[in-house]
């Protein structure tokens, strides 16, 4: 098999645009509630997230944005004290009540955290890790995918001569792009980004934001942020959260120009 043809391979996962039409939501959340003992963290969340757009979860720290994000790839399973009820449909799968194994669900969603967490291995192995977990062992395929995904996040030229160096030797901004490439390598449907630029300098932040604008052609991006300006710059849809509830949602122009609730009005005043 020639390397030129490798891009056409279906790695057990259909391409994003063959799954559903542009208008259909890729994520549907019904009556989602999260409790820790007596504390009600997420309250009756109902939400639809459209495909191939950037949906921004906006709100003050502690309003439940990150918890909502972690419910979507079931990282909440790590916290045994959390009780999660309701339904989250990713395409047609109800991921909270499924017999599908959890790693497969998680591979549908690339995760970008607040600060980069490169695995304690080389740059190459970071990108190759998820590919190998999918059972792909052919070195040509892995090499090709590593290069392709590093190019996709604009990192290839910076690291192509030191792929075997530790990933931690990269700058924080480069590490975050590496984490993005690592997530893209497993061919996710959705990118979950939890304040991905909060630890970065303005230049690195801009690079990541620009990547998102390019990537949304092929991926659905759910971005958590509390930075109003970032939401304005990037969002196709905004979901405003307060105290574990969704208060308002809509297109950024409508939402920011005509806020309907006191909570959002206050947030916009404070944010500006």
């Amino acid at each position: 098999m020639s390397v030129e043809n490798l891009d056409t391979i279906n790695w057990n996962m259909p391409e994003t645009d063959t799954i559903a039409s542009e208008s259909s939501p890729i994520v549907r959340i019904n009556e989602l509630n999260v409790h820790v003992k007596d504390h009600h963290i997420l309250k009756n969340i109902n939400l639809e997230i459209p495909k191939n757009q950037i949906t921004v979860l906006l709100g003050a720290s502690g309003c439940g944005k990150t918890t909502l994000l972690k419910c979507m790839n079931r990282l909440t399973d790590l916290y045994k004290e959390l009780k999660v009820t309701g339904n989250i449909f990713i395409e047609e799968d109800d991921i909270l009540n499924t017999s599908t194994n959890i790693p497969t669900i998680r591979q549908k969603m690339g995760l970008l955290s607040q600060r980069p967490y490169p695995l304690p291995v080389s740059i190459y192995k970071n990108v190759a890790y998820g590919i190998k977990l999918k059972g792909i062992r052919v070195k040509n395929l892995i090499d090709y995918s590593v290069e392709k995904n590093l190019k996709e996040v604009g990192l290839w030229d910076e690291v192509k001569n030191r792929l075997n160096s530790p990933a931690t030797s990269l700058s924080i901004g480069q590490q975050q792009r590496l984490c993005l490439a690592r997530g893209l390598a497993v061919k996710p449907r959705i990118i979950l980004a939890d304040e991905p630029t909060s630890a970065l300098d303005p230049i690195s932040s801009k690079i990541i934001e620009n990547q998102f604008k390019v990537l949304k052609k092929h991926y659905t991006i759910i971005l958590v942020t509390h930075v109003l300006r970032q939401a304005v710059r990037l969002a196709d849809n905004v979901v405003f959260m307060h105290d574990g509830r969704i208060i308002e949602q809509g297109k950024p122009d409508e939402l920011f120009k005509n806020p309907q609730t006191e909570e959002l009005k206050n947030y916009l005043v404070e944010g500006n």
Partner: peptide
Amino acid sequence: PVGLKEAALSLGAT
């Protein structure tokens, strides 16, 4: 860091 473990899990690790 928990984030490191979450990173591996989100890539499909058990």
